[in-house]
Amino acid sequence: MGEMNIYGIYFPILLVQAIIAYVLFKVMSPLIDRLVVKGWIALPSIFNLCFYLGLLLLVHGLFVWLWI
């Protein structure tokens, strides 16, 4: 599970997973912004970083689970 060949160009699987996680992060950002405005999240920058890393972990887990 190292790289993906698309029309002769090799892309690392982690790059593909990171792009998918980023798109999911951007889709879910308005929901998170509402919580920030209401004051439920104290440090939004750190929360956004951890939320993105959690999404990346979820996407990676799905790739591993579907690969097997």
Rank of each mutant, 00 (worst) to 15 (best):
M1S: 12
G2A: 11
G2E: 12
G2Q: 12
G2D: 12
M4K: 10
M4P: 00
I6R: 13
G8A: 02
G8E: 01
I9D: 07
Y10P: 07
Y10F: 09
Y10K: 14
P12Y: 02
P12G: 06
I13D: 04
I13M: 07
L15S: 07
L15V: 08
L15Y: 06
L15E: 04
V16A: 05
Q17M: 09
Q17N: 12
A18V: 03
I20A: 03
A21E: 03
Y22G: 08
V23T: 13
V23I: 09
L24M: 09
F25E: 01
F25W: 02
K26N: 12
M28A: 13
M28Q: 11
S29A: 13
P30G: 11
P30F: 05
P30D: 08
L31M: 15
L31V: 15
L31D: 12
D33I: 10
R34C: 04
R34I: 05
R34P: 05
R34F: 01
R34T: 08
L35W: 09
L35A: 12
L35S: 10
L35N: 13
L35C: 10
V37A: 15
V37G: 09
V37I: 14
V37D: 13
V37C: 08
K38F: 02
G39T: 01
G39I: 02
W40P: 05
A42V: 11
P44G: 06
P44T: 01
S45D: 14
I46C: 00
F47T: 01
F47W: 02
L49C: 07
L49D: 05
L49W: 06
C50H: 08
Y52K: 00
Y52N: 00
L53T: 02
L53Y: 01
L53H: 00
G54F: 14
G54Q: 04
L56A: 06
L56G: 03
L57G: 15
L57R: 12
L58D: 06
L58V: 07
L58C: 08
V59S: 13
V59P: 10
V59T: 14
H60L: 11
H60M: 09
G61P: 03
L62W: 09
F63A: 06
L66V: 13
L66C: 07
W67R: 06
W67Q: 14
I68P: 11
I68Q: 12
